[in-house]
């Protein structure tokens, strides 16, 4: 038995938006965690090279761990450190 794919809404913030070339995308994914989803997105967007270790992820408008499990319909934002002023 294989796991069903789920529809997820992904937004990219700041440098990630530039690397991905878009600010949001809806994906069908088998990824179980935010970390796995990011790896999947990296293969889909080869320019998305920002290291996962330095990312924060927001899951349905709350910061979460990269290991947090994903469910169908989740809204996910990947957020890099931003310091400009």
């Amino acid at each position: 038995m294989s796991l069903p794919s789920r529809k997820l809404q992904v937004r990219f913030f700041a440098v990630l938006r530039e690397q991905a070339g878009c600010s949001s995308v809806t994906v069908e994914s088998f990824a179980l965690t935010a970390a796995a989803l990011y790896a999947e997105l990296q293969s889909r967007f080869p320019a998305l090279t920002f290291p996962a270790a330095l990312l924060r992820v927001s899951l349905n408008e709350r910061y979460a761990d990269m290991t947090a499990p994903l469910s169908a319909g989740d809204r996910i934002v990947f957020i890099p450190p931003v310091a400009g002023g």
């Binding site: 700041a14 290291p51 330095l54 910061y63 890099p80 450190p81 931003v82 310091a83 400009g84 002023g85």
Partner: peptide
Amino acid sequence: LWPGRPAAELDFAGNCDGA
């Protein structure tokens, strides 16, 4: 928000000086 992350590492990734 950034547990255990040294500032230098975050600056390297996110700094804007001249950006």
